[in-house]
Design a binder for these strands. Structure first.
Length: 758
DNA sequence: ATCAAGGCTTTTTTT
DNA sequence: AAGCCTTGAT
């Protein structure tokens, strides 16, 4: 397949540059994903073993789409062996194999944000601190950013600057909360999201043999959206790539929008320092958008001080102006935008899936949902309260978690009395105190009242013992029984199915259906990983903990209008984009307008939003909006004025047609987890074979000159015949015809080629 | 131990 | 407006 011809010269250069450190600065719409995809395909076609490739993407969906596309070029069997996914999911799986070295169980739990906050809240209470001053969410933010900068609790406590900041904000004891939080997570056998990166760093730092193993395994490293990596991620990549320095990072500083979770543009600048002989490539031609859109976006981003200069341009048509629509209220905004979508669809024959409504905050989706539902237009909301965050789903998953890891304190607290089994707060308080006294987990106390006496009545003790016995019996099946069968058993025995089935209210019925859907998801996971080694219920839990809404699109969602935050839209594109709620204090956010750097991040966010559009881009703002249960009057966003006026057209909104009524939430569908990579299969024997040339790491050895006409065997492509040679060692390439897979041009130092004697 | 009522905060953005 | 938590009654 002649995949290289689908690229322009600028794109082709980094695709063919496989070795050594390279950085690709890719403007919006310049074909960045295409470059990454083809580069990986090209590497594999050149003979690089997919097992040696680590590719880190921003979402799991991006990873699975890229894998899909690579498969069509190099074949399914090849692509599935690439380690590809988000930092969090790739390293969660890596930790699964190595966590015991760090003192964590291999079935460690992944705490989500809610778990982390709940634990922090508990600690604040135990320390008898005022939770008005010590708000769990913001304490968690401090801890999270410490972890993302690899600052341990001890270092935190000894860092005068950090502790000084805490003192200034009248929360001098955060260092103590941090320390206890880490200890409690460790005791619970739990890692939070930040730990997945933090503990990976600890692992690679303290276990040289592990570092060495992954340095040899991942000889080629690629990182997408490099501008949004934080220090912790940066260091992982740097360590793994330290031996071969075959590292390719791709990013765009103008699209850096995640500094709130530790992303650091400094990483782009550090790249030059760490790899002085790196090669820089720039992709500046935009293939996505009209001239008006590209230039309008340029005119806004030019207002930022912090940026790497580049010149994004396009050969596309001029296209329509950017439209700015003014509305009275948020409800009118919903109707006006919805009507516009209807009109454009009628007049141009566009599909529903050609439209996206993008907003700054999830809460803004409401008015659009209402209007779309009234007009019967199909839509899909991404983000917000996702399927996995629903109470009933979290409840059942908590049982799964407890089964895999009985020390998981947050899961235990969640389900100990759900469904109601008469184990109330008073009882739990006593158990918690005992656990502190004996320095063991809650589950340990509950498992052995003889060894750990607690003053609880015998009736309550019996109930607890029943619960513990049940959980233990689930645990006994963990590695014996397929994930789905165990999940089904848990849902039944724990009484969840019955409890929800008895609830005949519409909400109860919906919850029951959601549980059924989760179970169906486990079933799908079980089936698609039937032959893999990572197919237990605890493997399912890893997937579930790290899945997001964007990762689980299904068939039913194909032709629908997209509603999402701008953050979630990164990397996507739509013919018609509506950016709504362009008002001061909303976009830019109220919390950002007092600092230049934060305001510039909001501006980059606006840049990202505008550059999602292919054909038309419409902005809207309202005069008064409902917020915090109050009507707030709003001024148009400064970003509207910052667009060079030659690209803009102002428009009056439709008149406000009054409508009334409100209905239920939209349905969101659930689909099962990601496929874990299967076992490696390689049907070739190495008998009668002589090794030629060398992989980059091995020095001498017996090598023999390859000649045209020789029969050769490739580890994965099978037998073939050399039809051509070009270049000289060490960069010699051979064209080989393989009857099984066709003609390939192999780079000899990568391709594991052997001359066949027969 | 459980439930209902009333008061309170909450909204950036996400793995 | 909605969800969460505390409070107080049973």
């Amino acid at each position: 397949m002649d995949y290289l011809s689908g690229l322009n010269e600028n794109q082709r250069a980094p695709v063919e540059h496989i070795e050594g450190p390279i950085m690709v600065i890719a403007g919006a719409g310049s074909g960045k994903t295409r470059v990454l995809t083809y580069r990986i395909a090209h590497m594999i076609n050149s003979g690089i073993d997919p097992f040696n490739i680590l590719a880190l993407t921003f979402t799991n969906k991006a990873a699975s789409e890229m894998k899909q596309r690579i498969s069509t070029i190099v074949g399914d069997g090849e692509a599935k062996n690439i380690a590809m996914g988000t930092f969090h999911s790739v390293f969660a799986k890596l930790l699964r194999y190595n966590s015991e070295r760090l003192g964590y169980p291999s079935n460690f739990t992944i705490y989500d944000t809610q778990d982390s906050r709940s634990l922090i809240k508990t600690i604040i209470k135990e320390l008898k601190l005022d939770d008005k001053e010590y708000k769990p969410a913001s304490v968690h933010g401090r801890i999270s950013s410490a972890k993302n900068n690899l600052i341990s609790p001890e270092e935190y406590a000894n860092n005068a600057e950090i502790v000084g900041e805490d003192r200034m904000s009248r929360r001098p004891l955060i260092y103590q909360i941090y320390k206890i939080y880490m200890q409690r997570c460790f005791k619970a056998g739990a890692m939070d999201f930040d730990d997945l990166l933090y503990q990976t760093n600890v692992l690679l730092r303290d276990f040289p043999e592990v570092l060495h193993y992954y340095q040899q395994k991942f000889k080629f490293v690629l990182v997408d959206e490099y501008q949004d990596t934080n220090y912790s991620q940066y260091l992982i990549v740097k360590k793994i790539a330290a031996v071969y320095e075959n590292i390719c990072v791709v990013g765009d500083d103008a699209q850096s929008i995640y500094s709130f979770r530790g992303a650091n543009i400094q990483n782009i600048l550090n790249f030059k320092k760490n790899y002085p002989d790196y090669q820089l490539y720039k992709l500046e031609q935009n293939y996505r958008s009209t001239k008006n859109i590209v230039e309008a976006a340029n005119s806004v981003i030019a207002k930022n001080q912090d940026q790497i200069k580049k010149d994004v341009w396009t050969e596309n048509d001029k296209g329509a102006h950017i439209k700015v629509v003014k509305c009275l209220t948020d409800n009118e905004e919903g109707r006006v935008i919805t009507n516009k979508i209807f009109d454009v669809k009628q007049s141009t024959g566009a599909e529903y899936s050609d439209f996206a409504i993008l907003y700054r905050t999830n809460a803004q989706s409401r008015s659009f949902e209402e209007s779309l539902r009234k007009l019967n237009m199909p839509y899909k909301i991404y983000g917000g309260l996702s399927f996995y965050q629903r109470k009933e789903i979290k409840d059942l998953i908590a049982y799964f978690r407890l089964t895999a890891n009985p020390n998981d304190e947050e899961a235990l607290k969640r389900v100990i009395n759900y469904p109601k089994r008469g184990i109330g707060n008073t009882t739990m308080e006593k158990i918690i105190i005992a656990a502190q006294q004996y320095d063991v987990s809650l589950f340990d106390i509950m498992s052995d009242f003889v060894r750990y006496p607690v003053s609880i009545g015998s009736a309550a003790q019996k109930k607890i013992i029943d619960f513990v016995t049940m959980v233990k019996s689930f645990g006994a099946d963990l590695d014996r029984v397929p994930a789905f069968d165990l999940a089904q058993r848990i849902a039944t025995s724990a009484g969840i199915l019955k409890n929800l089935h008895d609830d005949k209210t519409p909400e109860g019925v919906a919850r029951y259906e959601n549980i059924q859907e989760l179970l169906a998801g486990v079933k799908e996971f079980s089936i698609s990983n039937r032959d893999a080694e990572n197919n237990s219920l605890s493997d399912f839990l890893i997937d579930v903990a790290l899945l997001t809404d964007a990762d689980k699109d299904n068939e039913d969602d194909k032709n629908k209008i997209t509603l999402m935050t701008i953050h979630a839209s990164k990397g996507l594109e739509f013919p018609h984009v509506f950016i709504v709620g362009l008002e001061e204090n909303l976009f830019p956010s109220q919390l950002s307008i007092n600092s230049r750097t934060e305001l510039e991040e909001e501006r980059r966010l606006f840049y990202v939003a505008v550059t999602r559009a292919e054909k038309t881009c419409t902005l809207s703002h309202v005069q008064s909006r409902f917020r915090f249960g109050q009507i707030i009057s709003s001024e148009p966003s400064r970003f509207i004025d910052e667009i060079d006026e030659q690209f803009v057209e102002h428009e009056n909104a439709y008149s406000d047609k009054a409508t009334a009524g409100r209905s239920l939430n939209s349905d969101r569908k659930f689909r099962g987890g990601l496929n874990a990579p299967g076992p490696r299969t390689n049907g070739f024997s190495t008998r009668n074979l002589k090794k030629i040339d060398s992989t980059p790491n091995t020095g001498g050895g017996t090598t023999e000159t390859l000649k045209v006409g020789y029969n050769v065997v490739h580890e994965r492509f099978g037998k073939g015949k050399v039809t051509g040679l070009e270049g000289a060692a060490p960069n010699q390439k051979a064209t080989v015809f393989f009857p099984r897979v066709g003609q390939k041009t192999l780079i000899l130092k990568f391709a594991k080629l052997t001359i066949s004697e027969d």
